[in-house]
């Protein structure tokens, strides 16, 4: 019995807890992508670099606050800097819309033209971030590092295995929950949110109803920028901030949004957790788990790792391809433009 419990604790520690945290980060990222897709109808390749930009702005203020001795320990100082990062990112997104995307909207350009334009924006943001903060790894987390340490858990429960919960993980889950509830409240209840849904549902009819498209687009960018910054900062607190990693997050984020159904916010959340858990479960080495769970001499020799962690991209990709082949509009039904 103890074996099974130890096995479950082990699994919680290395699969479930990190999976939930990573899933929340992907979900917030995917929400941004899916909202932009729903309203502006293109896949925004600049989203990863928007996340990087927002995180960079937050990191810079965090450092400044730290140097001034401001602290909200046990919480990381970055939380205090987050609103500033969000505002900077909103300004950048609105500027990009004003100078880049609006022109193509008026031209009624094909979605792929928007996509190419977003690659241009991606380059500029990428260059900007590297120019300002450099391409290297940056740490900016402070405050209490753990909510629960494995050692304490073991001391309290007398199990062999322990569960570690990092502050960043707890923070990620709580923030994600607040963000998601706030977003859904906004979309379901507020006038602006409803007009966004209407616009996404049927653009022509929304125009006939007197909904101002420019306003809807503006609100969308504001929300997308906020979501990108929050996702980026949470990811950075949990791991670290490196511009290139954020660019690479584009793939799992897109996969999450598509798996759930592009344009469908609920789908983006489900997709985020699905991708995250697949990645973590497939790349986890089950040797120790099986040693606990199976009777003594059945324990396996190898690592029992289905896929090396270097191939975690492959996981999002395979799920993406499977969903596209079996259910092209995603599990929750998105738009098929």
């Amino acid at each position: 019995m103890d074996g099974i419990l130890n096995a479950l604790i082990l699994l919680s520690n290395f699969v479930i807890v990190p999976g939930i945290a990573y899933g929340s980060q992907l979900a917030i990222g995917a929400l941004g992508v899916t909202l932009v897709y729903g309203i502006l109808r293109f896949s925004n390749f600049a989203h990863g670099d928007t996340m990087a930009f927002g995180t960079m702005a937050t990191v810079l203020l965090t450092w400044a606050l730290q140097s001034w001795g401001v602290s909200i320990s046990p919480f990381p100082t970055a939380l205090l800097a987050l609103p500033f990062g969000i505002i900077c990112t909103i300004l950048v997104c609105l500027a990009a819309d004003r100078w880049v995307y609006r022109f193509y909207r008026r031209e009624k350009a094909a979605p792929v033209v928007f996509l190419i334009a977003s690659i241009g924006v991606m380059f500029v943001l990428n260059g900007l971030v590297r120019f300002i903060i450099g391409p290297d790894d940056q740490r900016f987390a402070d405050g209490e590092r753990f909510i629960m340490k494995a050692r304490e858990f073991k001391r309290l429960t007398h199990f062999n295995e322990g569960i570690t919960i990092k502050t960043s993980q707890g923070l990620t889950v709580v923030t994600a929950a607040i963000v998601v509830i706030a977003l859904f409240w906004f979309l379901k209840r507020s006038r602006a949110g409803k007009s966004m849904r209407a616009f996404s549902d049927n653009e022509d009819l929304a125009l006939l109803s007197g909904i101002n498209p420019e306003r809807v687009v503006m609100i969308t960018w504001i929300i997308a920028a906020a979501l990108a910054t929050i996702a980026g900062v949470l990811y950075g607190l949990d791991k670290s901030f490196k511009p290139f990693t954020y660019f690479q997050l584009l793939l799992p984020i897109f996969a999450s949004a598509i798996v759930g159904g592009l344009g469908n916010p609920l789908g983006a959340i489900a997709g985020g957790f699905m991708i995250a858990f697949s990645e973590v479960t497939v790349t986890y080495a089950y040797k120790k788990f099986l040693a606990y769970a199976l009777p003594g001499d059945w324990a396996p020799q190898g690592l029992v790792q289905l896929l090396s962690t270097d191939y975690k991209f492959a996981v999002s990709f395979v799920i993406l391809v499977l969903v596209l082949l079996l259910r092209p509009t995603g599990i929750f039904g998105g738009k098929a433009v």
Partner: peptide, 25 residues
């Protein structure tokens, strides 16, 4: 006020929300 022949409702929204959107201005 204009009612198009096709695609003249917001399919994903409730009836009441459709009417609310009608009153948007």
């Amino acid at each position: 006020s204009f009612v198009p022949q096709n695609h003249n409702v917001f399919t994903s929204m409730s009836v009441e929300e459709n009417l609310e959107m009608g009153a948007f201005i």
